[in-house]
Design a protein around this nucleic acid. Structure first.
Length: 802
DNA sequence: CGCCCCCGCGCA
DNA sequence: GCGCGGGGGCGG
């Protein structure tokens, strides 16, 4: 087994295969599949993943592995197989799936340098270029006055050499420690000799005499209320020494979490958890769907199931949608399992993520709570995988590899023979339909653990408001209720459903709308910088004074961003203290938590925000939830728009009156008769499910069919259309008779970054080998992709159709 | 003929 | 993804 099979770090379809390398004697013993290696590839050096070892190769002249980056495999054999499966399933490259399973810092960093080999004088230009340095980064060749030709020549003459560097981006955090450098009696001697004015030094030295153990530099300085200079003085006298030690970054101080113990379960909870516990005991795989209303105690079921898994010596993965609900979730998991929990979510720095990942990798924890990619946690003894808020969009990755965490979880659950739990108050139609068919095991929690009724939902017809002459964003009902709550010292959550309502700029005179010159999309107005920005290509320009089309000065921004609502709100109810929560106010690290804490401390009456406030928040003093525009996402060209509206309204209603105070919800809409709004107001999921299933059946959408979306983009409009057309034509020839292909149609954003985008959609029931078929199809365009900058992307289960 | 740019290929 | 090498264009 002296040959390694390697997937190299070159993201190109022609390289999407293993390459064989000779394993040098010195690595024979230690090299295992799942390790990263440095290999020669053509004239350069790159990183690769060893996926297997073998004795034979169809190539007779193999190159040798140059170096090994890891001491232990960073991908288990299970994850190597999973990566392969995922690449084939999602039509991605192997290298892409491997990278997606690992923390960012394990990716390679490439550098190219030029080294001067001779002391003899070079040409004037080269001398100027090297500027008395021996090694120069290769990028500097550009704009340096030295031609590539000259460099080539100098290399040939042996005067200079090119070096390729491959580095792991890993950064480890080090902390400086101090300890005495000499025997105690020598320190005592030095203390006696020390002049009286060196008070701080004396104190510190006394400390070291009493505590000869090592101590962290920063802690010491803090404790003595002094500066580094005191330490430096002692270091200079060689009385103490300093050394650096690696520490793991810990984004959460475990000691601050109050320990909790199992709660008594309700009858319904016990019924739901029983079969799960049994599966855990018997090492049996099945998918469970827990459909439980908000407040029905799903989390407690997760916690107790995980306790069983831990007791068996196995491990648990808990997926949560994203940062917005993580702080409270983290608290519950850390509270129950303490330092046995690793947390992986997008708000952590790369370094913090890496350290949390390593705690999993080193088997220092048994539980991981995290966002989508945590489904790849390198556990080897999984006992359960839980996906909370199963319906959330964020479980679908929207770039390569376009996977859904649910599918990966189920695949891993089968491998480890362990249960997979999907939990939601509003399951996706796909999951609920599977539960109805018996593919998933269904558990329903209809009662809240505190026996409280769900808050009452009042629908306000905004058309009536218009007729009554109220043209503001706030209905009279909502206004009165808000004022009343503020008077009573209670709090309010206001949801602005911003999607489809971005703040674009339009001329009131001629109707001209300012669009991005590179993308067919209206520019979004950002007030604080007075700038117009494109959300797709980050193009920006300043807000024009006059309409570029008719020169009128009546050019204004339209739409309703949270900023405008905030202004309108303070005008409407001047005494209201408003906290605004949106992408702008939560961009900075920790800003999210800070805002929520402010609100929890009652520093504001109203929390105003976008979708991000709909989920998981739990404030005891909130008694009113207002939804400003319930139907703003209802009319988007997406077959899931009703489902998303229902989910959002249900989620946000769950934010009111979770504790002693009764809650109320006011939903403003222009289409109160729509079933998703009406049924959400009555918390009737089942009815909604039935009604929506009828619609899906009628128009043949999931879960009745599967979807695949192929998008083609090119600078040339005609090429984009024609290529899509060819793909459609080819597909028709090979698909089953009940399969339908729609298109070509322009993408919802027909032009982005100066490229035209066309798409086609495949709707099918039985296509056992669609991936292979599409792969072959795309293969025909390989040449065009390569030299003509054609792009074809495939999404096997599109979520965002727009 | 020498110099330079561009394209296509192959990488184990 | 990227460096190489061959082909071709161009100036002398």
């Amino acid at each position: 087994m002296n040959i390694a099979k390697v997937i190299v770090d070159v993201p190109a379809s022609s390289i999407n295969q293993t390459f064989d390398y000779q394993i040098p004697e010195r690595f024979q013993e230690m090299l295992k599949p799942g390790m990263r290696v440095m290999v020669p590839f053509g004239p350069r050096k790159i990183m690769g993943y060893v996926v297997g070892r073998t004795n034979e190769s169809s190539f007779d002249q193999l190159k040798e592995i140059i170096d090994v980056f890891d001491l232990t495999p960073i991908l288990t054999t299970e994850l190597l197989d999973l990566g392969k499966w995922l690449a084939e399933e999602t039509l991605s490259l192997y290298i892409t799936t491997f990278q997606a399973m690992l923390p960012q810092v394990l990716k390679a960093n490439y550098k190219k340098e030029l080294e001067r080999l001779t002391s003899a004088s070079l040409s004037d230009q080269l001398e100027a270029f090297f500027d008395r340095r021996d090694v120069v980064p290769y990028e500097e060749v550009e704009n340096s006055g030295v031609s590539f030709y000259q460099i080539q020549k100098a290399i040939q003459d042996g005067d200079i050499a090119v070096h390729y560097l491959v580095k792991s981006r890993v950064t480890k955090k080090h902390v400086t420690f101090l300890k005495p450098a000499r025997d105690i009696h020598l320190l005592e001697e030095a203390l006696r000799d020390m002049p009286n004015r060196a008070r701080k030094q004396q104190e510190m030295l006394t400390f070291f005499i009493d505590h000869p153990q090592e101590i962290e530099l920063n802690k010491l300085i803090k404790e003595f209320g002094t500066t580094r200079s005191t330490v430096n003085a002692l270091l200079k006298k060689e009385l103490i020494t300093s050394f650096r030690k690696e520490v793991f970054r810990n984004p959460y101080d475990d000691s601050v979490f109050e320990q909790t113990t199992s709660l008594e379960l309700t009858e319904q909870q016990r019924e739901a958890i029983e079969p799960i516990k049994q599966h855990i005991q018997e090492n049996r795989h099945d998918v469970f769907l827990i459909h439980g209303v908000t407040g029905s105690g799903k989390t407690e079921i997760y916690l107790q199931a995980i306790q069983d898994v831990i007791d068996k010596g196995k491990e648990a993965i808990v997926l949560v949608p994203e940062i917005s609900l993580t702080p409270q979730m983290v608290k519950r998991f850390k509270g129950r399992f303490g330092s046995n929990v690793a947390v992986l979510h997008s708000a952590l720095s790369y370094g913090e993520k890496y350290d949390e990942w390593r705690r999993i990798h080193r088997k220092e924890v048994q539980v991981v709570v995290g966002a989508r990619s945590a489904v790849f946690a390198p556990f080897e003894n999984l006992g359960i995988i839980i996906i909370d808020e199963e319906h959330e969009n964020s479980y679908k990755q929207e770039d390569q590899p376009r996977y859904h965490a649910r599918d990966v979880a189920i695949h891993r659950g089968e491998y480890h023979r362990c249960p997979v739990i999907l939990g939601s108050a509003t399951p996706t139609l796909e999951s609920y339909a599977r539960a109805q068919k018996g593919v998933y095991k269904l558990a329903t929690l209809t009662k809240r653990t505190n026996e409280k009724a769900m808050p009452e939902v009042n629908i306000v017809d905004m058309r009536d408001e218009l007729h009554a002459g109220n043209r503001s964003m706030f209905s009279r009902n909502l206004k009165e209720n808000m004022e009343q709550r503020i008077r009573r010292g209670e709090q309010i959550v206001l949801l602005l459903n911003r999607r489809g309502y971005s703040t674009f700029v339009m001329c009131r005179e001629c109707g001209y709308v300012k669009e991005c010159p590179h993308c067919d999309i209206a520019l979004t107005f950002h007030k604080h910088q007075n700038q117009l920005k494109c959300h797709y290509c980050s193009y920006e320009e300043s807000m024009p004074m006059y309409c570029p089309s008719c020169s009128s000065d009546l050019i204004r921004f339209f739409g309703t961003g949270t900023q405008r609502i905030e202004e309108a709100l303070t005008q409407l109810i001047p005494e209201a203290r408003v906290l605004r929560m949106d992408v702008d106010t939560t961009r900075r690290k920790g800003a999210h938590e800070k805002l929520l804490n402010q609100f929890a401390n009652k520093e504001a009456d109203i929390l105003l925000g976008t979708q991000m406030i709909a989920k998981g928040l739990d404030f005891e003093n909130v008694t009113l939830v207002g939804v400003l525009t319930a139907d703003s996402m209802l009319h988007l060209p997406d077959f899931r728009s009703s489902e998303k509206t229902f989910q959002l309204l249900t989620q946000v209603s769950g934010r009111a009156g979770r504790h002693d105070l009764p809650g109320e919800v006011i939903v403003q809409t222009y289409t109160p008769e729509h079933y998703s709004i009406e049924l959400a107001s009555r918390y009737n999921y089942l009815r909604f499910y039935q009604q929506e299933m009828q619609t899906r059946k009628k128009f043949q959408y999931p879960p009745y069919v599967f979807l695949t979306l192929i998008t083609v983009s090119h600078q040339n409009h005609v090429t984009a259309v024609q290529t899509t057309q060819q793909i459609v034509k080819n597909l028709w020839k090979h698909v089953q008779s009940d399969t339908v292909i729609l298109g070509p149609t322009p993408s919802p954003i027909p032009r982005m970054k100066d490229r035209f985008r066309y798409q086609c959609m495949i709707k099918y029931k039985h296509e056992s080998d669609l991936q292979r078929l599409i792969q072959k199809m795309i293969h025909q365009f390989d040449d065009e992709v390569r030299k003509n900058d054609l792009q074809i992307t495939v999404d096997m289960q599109p979520y965002q159709l727009m």
